[in-house]
Write a protein that binds this DNA or RNA. Structure first.
Length: 427
RNA sequence: GGAGGGGUGGCAGAGUGGUCGAAUGCGCCGCAUUCGAAAUGCGGUAUGCCGAAAGGCAUCGUGAGUUCGAAUCUCACCCCCUCCGCCA
């Protein structure tokens, strides 16, 4: 959530900021009005309570009927006001929760992905002298992906990863860990179910995201949409010493997403599914260091993708396309030759103090306290597997394994069960 | 799932209707002592909100209730711990 004091003092900046994110700036005025009313009502109730406290103290000495009747009267009035204050407070936080983080001043402004700024394109796109197949037909043919049985068992937007498909996932995870641990990231396997107040604090139950989450009614718990959702709250309510910052974690977890509102988008295959595994980076750092930390996380992402020798580009998201909680966001998109376009495989966000305020995660520097800056970034999800299938496909219908993954997968080429017998017949 | 115990300040832990935002100890900060340190002594040390300040209000797991007045009494809920059962 945003800093209330900051909204009061910089209403114009906040209005401009949220408008860039396609949120009605009038909400800021509505918030401020509710805030003023709340403040006035609280002041009134505080005064009545003060009177009541004075009387109570006098009565502690001895019983006096006239004082008791006066206090009874006060009690009734306070009761009425308390209800009004509660209503105003709810209204006030209601508006506050509809305000996203304000983007950095130099973030490109625009309504959608068309305004995103491509920072660089890296790597050579593969050239094929045969008709290029998409990852799904390759995966199905080699027995690596099964969406038909997944539909039978679980419904749409699920998939089975099989054989080298499954091995590739573990390989990516191992590559991520082996690359990141030397940088001091603490490996962590976090819970995938979290309390509502934690998700709320992380800004992940905001207006536009609530429908995206799975909720376990009986237990009052949400399934995480990313390891971010349970790694951030790890330090909820804590105050970290400045000297021990930044605190960096690399977490592995399954991510659950309802994909509400994406009907008809990427329905084929397993690019967009309800459940996938992901290795995620999370960093808690000093406010003055967060932009630097953000670039650092991005550099690690590039290192990981480059290790796979896949062509990619780095995009700075525009205000209309970036996340609710983000001050600045980069995406790394990998080239998918069959589609002839880049697809998002990584995202890297600096949420500044927007999330830390919600989960009350602070730092202390000499007696001074302040809110930490929280950053999250993808190391590897399942999507790069699909990119590998497309980019490393061969004329013979096999898929070569990227050099960096060969030691984890245990082979240099994925031949597939069917393909193997075909080859046998040919020879 | 069954039985029991418990949630109080950074930590430990007292407090069963009023002068309790809360004893005491530890920790932490400052000062004294010291060449310096340890030890010791003295003082200070929760958070949020409103306020320019003085100050005020709120907070003893959460919410509701009783009362002029609740950490303390009543009810509901949440969480933690121990034992039994089940289980990878």
């Amino acid at each position: 959530m945003l800093d209330i004091q900051y909204i009061r003092e910089h209403a114009d900046l906040v209005k401009a900021g949220v408008e860039k994110k396609k949120v009605d700036p009038k909400l800021v005025d509505k918030f401020l009005r509710a805030d003023e009313m709340w403040k006035a009502k609280v002041a009134a109730i505080d005064e009545l309570r003060r009177e009541q406290n004075v009387i109570s103290k006098e009565l502690a000495g001895g019983q006096k009927d006239d004082l008791v009747s006066k206090a009874t009267l006060l009690k009734t009035r306070i009761g009425q006001l308390e209800k009004e204050v509660a209503d105003l407070a709810a209204k006030r936080t209601g508006f506050l929760n509809r305000l996203p983080n304000v983007p950095a001043p130099d973030v490109p402004v625009g309504p959608d992905e068309s305004a995103n700024r491509v920072l660089r394109e890296v790597g050579e796109r593969p050239v094929f002298d045969f008709p290029v197949k998409d990852y799904l037909s390759i995966g199905e043919r080699l027995g690596l992906i099964d969406v038909k049985r997944a539909a039978k068992v679980s419904g749409s937007r699920f998939g089975y990863l099989l054989r080298e498909g499954a091995l590739l996932e573990f390989a990516l995870e191992r590559l991520a860990l082996d690359t990141l641990l030397p940088h001091g990231f603490v490996p962590v396997i976090p819970p995938v179910m979290v309390r509502p107040e934690m998700l709320e604090g992380m800004g992940r139950l905001a207006a536009d995201q609530k429908e995206e989450r799975y909720f376990l009614e009986k237990d009052g718990l949400y399934l995480v949409g990313s390891a971010e959702h349970s790694m951030g709250p790890f330090h909820a309510g804590e105050t970290l010493d400045e000297n021990r910052l930044p605190k960096r974690y690399v977490g592995f977890s399954t991510s659950f997403r309802r994909e509400a509102g994406s009907y008809g988008k990427d329905t084929k295959g397993i690019l967009r599914v309800h459940q996938f595994d992901k290795v995620e980076l999370f960093s808690f750092c000093h406010p003055e260091k967060s932009e630097e930390e953000h670039r650092f996380l991005l550099s690690l992402q590039e290192e990981l993708v480059a290790a796979l020798e896949l062509p990619y580009r780095v995009v700075e998201m525009c205000t209309g396309d970036m996340g609710w909680t983000d001050f600045r966001q980069f995406d790394v998109d990998i080239w998918f030759p069959a589609e002839g376009c880049y697809r998002e495989t990584h995202s890297c966000s600096n949420t500044t103090d927007f999330q830390s305020r919600g989960i009350n995660a602070k730092f202390t520097a000499g007696g001074e306290k302040g809110y930490l800056h929280l950053l999250n970034a993808t190391a590897f999800s399942q999507r790069p597997i699909l990119a590998i299938l497309e980019n490393y496909q061969t004329k013979r219908g096999t898929v070569r394994v990227p050099k960096a993954l060969q030691k984890y997968v245990g082979k240099k080429e994925i031949v597939g069960e069917n393909q193997k017998s075909d080859l046998k017949n040919q020879s």
